Each structure stands twice: as structure tokens, then as C-alpha cells.
Deep mutational scan, measured.
Amino acid sequence: DIEITTNGEEDAKRVIKELQKRNLEYHIEVHGNQWVIKVR
């Protein structure tokens, strides 16, 4: 598993777009303004 910590929603959406392009499965956890994306 890979864990990507982003700085808020805009940053997270940019990362998610890339993950979707590669058809990767991911899970999002929001901790305040930090979005942690866990990639399987």
C-alpha cells in the first residue's frame, strides 16, 4: 500500500485524477485539511 498525504481538497483531486487514469483502487481519509489517500 502507498500512502499519499495531500494539502487539502484541490491537491487531493489532482492526485485522484492521476490514480483514476491508472485504474488504481484508493481510499481517502480526511484529517482536518489534510487528505490522506491510501492506494492499494
Rank of each mutant, 00 (worst) to 15 (best):
1 D>C: 14
1 D>G: 12
1 D>N: 12
1 D>I: 15
1 D>A: 11
1 D>T: 14
1 D>V: 14
2 I>A: 04
3 E>F: 15
3 E>I: 15
3 E>S: 13
4 I>F: 09
4 I>Q: 01
4 I>Y: 10
4 I>S: 01
4 I>W: 08
5 T>M: 12
5 T>F: 14
6 T>E: 02
6 T>A: 14
6 T>P: 05
7 N>K: 09
7 N>G: 06
7 N>Q: 13
8 G>C: 09
8 G>K: 09
8 G>M: 06
9 E>A: 10
10 E>D: 11
10 E>G: 06
10 E>K: 09
10 E>T: 07
11 D>L: 08
11 D>F: 08
11 D>M: 12
12 A>T: 06
12 A>S: 04
12 A>W: 04
12 A>D: 00
13 K>D: 07
13 K>W: 14
13 K>V: 09
13 K>R: 13
16 I>A: 05
16 I>K: 01
17 K>Q: 12
17 K>M: 12
17 K>F: 11
17 K>T: 10
18 E>V: 08
18 E>L: 10
18 E>G: 04
18 E>R: 05
18 E>I: 12
18 E>W: 15
19 L>R: 00
19 L>K: 01
19 L>C: 06
20 Q>V: 12
20 Q>A: 09
20 Q>D: 13
20 Q>L: 11
21 K>H: 09
21 K>G: 07
21 K>D: 13
22 R>W: 14
22 R>C: 06
23 N>K: 12
23 N>T: 03
23 N>V: 03
23 N>W: 04
23 N>P: 02
23 N>G: 15
24 L>N: 02
24 L>M: 10
25 E>P: 11
25 E>K: 14
25 E>N: 10
25 E>V: 12
25 E>F: 10
25 E>I: 13
26 Y>D: 00
26 Y>V: 04
27 H>C: 08
28 I>T: 03
28 I>P: 00
28 I>S: 02
29 E>Q: 07
29 E>N: 04
30 V>A: 04
30 V>Q: 09
30 V>G: 02
30 V>T: 06
31 H>F: 11
31 H>T: 10
31 H>L: 10
33 N>R: 05
33 N>Y: 08
33 N>S: 10
33 N>E: 11
34 Q>D: 05
34 Q>E: 09
34 Q>L: 14
35 W>V: 06
35 W>R: 02
36 V>N: 03
36 V>L: 08
36 V>S: 03
37 I>K: 00
37 I>L: 03
38 K>Y: 14
38 K>P: 00
38 K>G: 02
38 K>W: 10
38 K>A: 05
38 K>H: 12
39 V>Y: 08
39 V>T: 03
39 V>W: 05
39 V>A: 03
39 V>P: 01
40 R>Q: 11
40 R>H: 15
40 R>K: 15
